[in-house]
């Protein structure tokens, strides 16, 4: 009865009343999003602005007095050999890992999309790598990489390559690929499950129509499956570029950036600047560069995605 009365009132509302009603609704909306804005402002915007501000200072955790130094920190970056090595590793790690995760995740999703016995159990088991904490994953792999007693070396020795027995994370040529392997081990199942969900949302009738038109498996994949999961691909790639480029824990726990500089990446370098040298200002300038690089990536990526969508 009340509902009917309210509908009636709205239907015959005077323009002034309608204006008041809209204003009220707008205020209600603002009130509803205010907590989220406050939380984001406090925990995202403020630290971000503070980080940007510090990048232009000589802030040192142990020294009193902070002064603005203009672009001095950024000029110092240009001649910082370790910064460039770390940047190279960060870009390489992100590009290789995200590409391989995409390809392997796609293969996994296609495999899981087949109607085979035990598939639901398999789907549950493979997500274990995603559930296990990163620290536990790293410890597991570090143990497997140990000389003599690690699983990798036991297998290598068993098949007759005893001369390859070594601490794999201590080899400068292997350490970075090994870190990539850790990323893949953790994230490929996640990609697989996400792509599978997107594949299962594609109407079966598309495939049936394609079959009637004489499309083979390859055609169906290129013209139905891949466009069908396009939005999921964009989401997954976007998220993982961000996660991988900013990833700290895998490298820090596995190698700390070593051996020599073989696995140095920007997040670990920022941490070392802030917590070994205590040069917060310089560390913030590296963080600012990371922010700029990711922003450029996102702008370009989103523009390309939107252009493709329109096309």
């Amino acid at each position: 009865m009340i509902k009917g009365w309210a509908i009636g009132l709205t239907a015959v509302a005077h323009p002034v009343f309608s204006h008041f009603n809209m204003k009220l609704r707008k205020q209600q909306g603002i009130m509803l999003i205010l907590p989220a804005i406050l939380v984001m402002g406090l925990f995202t915007v403020y630290p971000l602005l503070e980080g940007l501000r510090m990048a232009f200072t000589n802030k040192h955790l142990l020294k009193e007095g902070v002064r603005y130094v203009g672009l001095q920190n950024f000029i110092r970056l240009l001649s910082d050999e370790i910064f460039w090595v770390s940047l190279y590793h960060s870009v390489l790690l992100t590009a290789v890992v995200v590409f391989l995760q995409f390809v392997l995740g796609l293969i996994l999703a296609l495999a899981m999309n087949q109607k085979l016995p035990g598939m639901s159990l398999f789907k549950s088991i493979i997500m274990a790598s995603w559930v296990i904490p990163v620290a536990a994953t790293v410890i597991l792999f570090k143990f497997m990489a140990q000389p003599d007693i690690g699983l990798i070396n036991i297998v290598i020795k068993t098949i007759g390559f005893e001369n390859l027995n070594r601490y794999w994370l201590g080899d400068p040529n292997v350490a970075l690929p090994f870190i990539m392997l850790l990323h893949l081990w953790r994230n490929v199942p996640f990609y697989g499950v996400a792509f599978l969900a997107a594949m299962q949302a594609i109407p079966e009738s598309y495939y049936e129509a394609a079959e009637i038109d004489g499309a083979n498996t390859r055609h169906k994949f290129w013209h139905i499956t891949l466009p069908g999961i396009r939005n999921m691909v964009i989401v997954m790639v976007t998220i993982h570029v961000l996660w991988t480029f900013n990833n700290f824990d895998f490298v820090y726990l596995a190698t700390g950036g070593g051996p020599v500089n073989a696995t140095d990446v920007l997040p670990v370098y920022v941490y070392r600047q802030c917590w070994t040298s205590y040069t917060i200002g310089y560390g913030a300038s590296i963080g600012t560069v990371m922010l700029l690089l990711l922003m450029i990536y996102f702008i370009v990526f989103i523009k390309i995605s939107e252009r493709d969508k329109i096309a």
Binding site: P147, R166, Y167, G170, G258, P259
Partner: peptide, 11 residues
Amino acid sequence: FPACDPNVRGT
């Protein structure tokens, strides 16, 4: 036969 084990470099 090195003096130190090369596998424990960096430890």
